[in-house]
Design a protein around this nucleic acid. Structure first.
Length: 621
DNA sequence: TTAGGGTTAG
């Protein structure tokens, strides 16, 4: 008897080890059939192992089928196993479905189910379901179960209902750290950073803030676009004896990427190396994105190459492709896109947005069209407004304004301000005054408090010589009290960021900088420079006045400062909040040649790298 | 059994 048992359990263990090698559904089916035939499906241990494997790999719907069809009256443990597994699968809604099945079965309920269910609600961002489950667990008498309450707080937090979360939090006699972190998340998610920070500061010392607490507040600031504050908190975290883990690092890297803070980003990278924190897919993404957005594509590629093949997820590939896109390296982006597919990684909607952006920025019209019109068939991704946006931009930049406009008319969703904005820009570049004026009016209607809308509309009127209309638009803007965001450029030197705002003289060394700029300008003029005033369609009387304005542009002052303060041959890195104007672009090309300097300039949407009189954008931007 | 992260069109 004991011999039989041993051999049968041996057989089971062998079968289970086969199970773990299954990567295709046919293979899984074979193991499944074998287990049924051998009677293993009467053994709860075997069933648990089988379902757990399916749920943790790509076979969660297979697990669901087996569970519902093959099992005779599963117990509460198995129901919970299924609900847990499905809650973090790619179809969390099936978890809720199973819960309703469980209720109509004879399996007795227990409080263990609820945190899993609420996890599914969080993953679905489902507020209605959260309230239903809340009501149900109250009715069943689990309203004081700490795990359930914390999960409820989290679900309300994730769905943006911080008041619901707070109400529950305030009723807890002594909230644990999970409760604190969850309620803070609620405020952070809703952008209520003042309250989030106040609560964060109120966490009692004995609860001992952990890396999760810190990351919650840091990533809250990042999501609110308050990146400087995020990095300040990251520094505070390091002084507080809570070592950052990979999740904290990824959040801080996001802040660096947005700020263009290359030095701090590099520091985080070397910290991860020193602390022997392995670079997983998410950290790799954050690093590649940081280096790319800070203008260092070589380093971004270095990180990408060091990532192990198994870790090269679609997101990691997408981060690299996006980097090439906004560096204007369309050919390289497409090459990587092809390479990615050869390794068996399928693109998602975001990857395709990046590829289309790359085509748009490089003028690869046919390549872009081919991807756009086959994406649903080839990649099973339905075009979203972002993809249409890329296409409108691609066609518009290339001068195919009618085609772009037709696409806007026939797309299945309503055009938003981004789409109209990109079409208006194309009208300016290609001097289609009539269409541009119509779009300008639409945009002002959509965004009456956005200064840029009025400025662009006034400019297109001016371009058509309609000075009275241009003046009227500016007057309208003034009357409404709307102000234009001023152009602002920054340059980082030895860890200090210097800021220059157009026409503003607040920098301590402004007089020397202006004088330096006059010297630069003279050298440019000796080399044949003539100002490019086309972009500056202000209704000013004469060219002299317009020239004076163009020479106060913030990026010129930043570069002049860079030339003053850095050694010959050093790359000058400048960031601008708006798009670079034609004259500044021309000037940068000349400076790069005459002063033998590489200039890397990040503007609102992309990078320009100037070297020896040329720019990587090929003057197509 | 409960809490934190990355890639997206102007």
């Amino acid at each position: 008897m004991s011999l039989t048992l041993t051999s049968s359990s041996l057989a089971l263990e062998q079968t289970l080890s086969c199970l773990h090698k299954c990567s295709k559904e046919v293979e899984l089916k074979q193991v499944h059939a074998h287990m049924l035939k051998s009677g293993f499906f009467h053994d709860p241990y075997a069933i648990t192992k089988f379902l757990s494997f399916c749920l943790s790999s790509t076979f969660s719907s297979y697990a669901q089928d087996v569970f519902l069809n093959d099992l005779d009256r599963p117990d509460t443990f198995l129901w919970n196993l299924m609900i847990k597994g499905l809650s973090s699968s790619d179809q969390p809604e099936t978890s809720l479905l199973l819960y309703h099945r469980m209720l109509s079965s004879s399996a007795p309920h227990n409080p263990y189910t609820f945190p899993f269910l609420l996890k599914a609600c969080s993953n679905l961002s489902a507020f209605q379901e959260t309230t239903q489950i809340h009501a149900h667990l109250t009715k069943l008498g689990y309203a004081n179960d700490v795990y359930s309450v914390n999960s409820l707080i989290n679900s309300y937090a994730v769905t943006g209902h911080f008041n619901h979360a707070r109400l529950l939090f305030d009723r807890i006699q002594e909230p644990d750290l999970v409760s604190w972190n969850s309620v803070i998340k609620g405020y952070a998610k809703a952008g209520e950073m003042d309250t989030a920070l106040t609560l964060f500061r109120t966490i009692p010392q004995e609860k001992k803030k952990n890396a999760i607490s810190w990351t919650t507040i840091i990533s809250g600031y990042v999501q609110a676009g308050m990146n400087k504050e995020a990095l300040q908190l990251f520094h505070e975290m390091q002084n507080s004896n809570v070592p950052p883990d990979k999740v904290s690092l990824a959040s801080a890297l996001s802040a660096c990427a947005q700020l263009g803070a290359l030095e701090q980003g590099r520091w985080i990278h070397s910290y991860a190396d020193k602390a022997r924190i392995s670079i997983d897919s998410v950290l790799a993404c954050a690093l590649i994105d940081m280096y790319a957005k800070c203008g260092d594509m070589e380093e971004a590629l270095g990180v990408f190459k060091d990532v192990k093949k198994k870790t090269k997820s679609v997101q990691v590939w997408t981060a690299l492709i996006s980097g090439y896109a906004y560096h204007g390296l369309g050919g390289e982006a497409i090459r990587r896109f092809t390479e990615m597919q050869k390794t068996g990684v399928k693109p998602n909607g975001i990857t395709l947005t990046a590829v289309l952006t790359a085509c748009s920025y490089t003028g690869l019209v046919e390549e872009g069209k081919s991807v756009f019109y086959t994406m649903e068939r080839d990649y099973n991704v339905k075009p979203t407004i972002e993809h249409y946006g890329c296409m409108v931009d691609l066609l518009g930049r290339a001068g195919l304004l009618d085609e772009a406009n037709r696409l806007v008319q026939k797309m299945p969703m309503k055009a938003n301000a981004v789409i109209w904005g990109s079409l208006l820009k194309a009208c300016q570049i290609h001097r289609n005054i009539e269409l541009g004026e119509r779009i300008g009016e639409i945009l002002i209607g959509m965004d009456p408090n956005h200064g840029g809308r009025y400025v662009h509309t006034a400019n297109i009127h001016a371009m058509g010589g309609k000075w009275d209309k241009a003046a009227e638009t500016r007057r309208l803007m003034k009357n409404k009290g709307v102000v234009k965001v001023p152009g602002c450029s920054t340059i980082s030197l030895e860890g200090t960021t210097h800021e220059f705002v157009a026409g503003d003289g607040s920098h301590a060394e402004i007089e020397i900088i202006r004088s330096k700029w006059r010297t630069v300008r003279r050298r440019l003029e000796e080399n044949g420079y003539v100002p490019e005033l086309e972009d500056l369609l202000l209704d000013l009387a004469d060219d002299e006045e317009r020239e004076a304005i163009v020479h106060q542009h913030s990026e010129k002052l930043a570069v002049a400062y860079g030339l003053m303060k850095t050694k010959p041959g050093t790359t000058i890195r400048v960031m601008k909040n708006l798009r670079v104007c034609k004259d500044c672009h021309k000037v940068m090309k000349l400076v790069s040649k005459i002063y033998k300097r590489d200039i890397v300039m990040r503007d609102r949407t992309r990078f320009h790298r100037f070297r020896d009189g040329k720019c990587t954008c090929g003057d197509y931007w």
